[in-house]
Amino acid sequence: MLAIFKREFKSYFTSMTGYAFAAFLLIFTGIYTMSICLMGYYSNFEYVVGNVAFIFLIIVPVLTMRVFAEERKQKTDQLLYALPLSMTKIVLGKYLALLAIFAVPVAVMAVYPFILSFFGNVSIKISFCAIFGFFLLGAALIAIGMFISSLTESQPLAAAICFLVLLVNYLADGLSAYVPFGAQLLSDTCLFMRLDQFVYGVLDLSVVALFVSVAAVAVFLTVQALEKRRWS
């Protein structure tokens, strides 16, 4: 599993994907920090985190589209199946690598509140609560993207489907006002909205559990999707 993790992590940084992912996230964090904290005179970095979350719509598909689709396209999936490795270990190795890549820009984000605290009264605790929630939300969405990538061998298709799924999820709360029934259910499925709790400084364990469960279910489904391919 460690070998899979290492290879995957390195491959993202020998190609452009890893850097593009980190750069994109950090550029938008920078823009919002400037407009909210520097020009808007708010000392609340958590607002930045809350606003930046929409960027997942773009960076998660970019990050996850290749993770299994590429293996399948270049036929290296056969190698993984023939090696003495269980499917769960392959999937977990890859998922942890994706999380590690995601953790790199988040670690940079975590420095921001400290820098801002030189110039104002920043609540480090609330900022970190928000960043923690941001990471968990990202982890859940990345797992969903990984699952979608395991369904196809076309990277663009994986990215497009992932984008659509995330977009619907992002808009679910707003859309719920327009549906004739099941409005509550639809708005409840919105993962993005749950980040607000963290941004307000509430470390709600039920939301933590929700994000972790979504990630766990998506990882499980990925294993099943890959196993199914061997049996079909």
Binding site: R7, S11, T14, S15, Q74, K75, T76, D77, Q78, L79, A82
Partner: peptide, 9 residues
């Protein structure tokens, strides 16, 4: 396998 399973990068 029939197509060598190599990582091109």
């Amino acid at each position: 396998p029939e197509i060598p399973p190599l990582y091109p990068d």
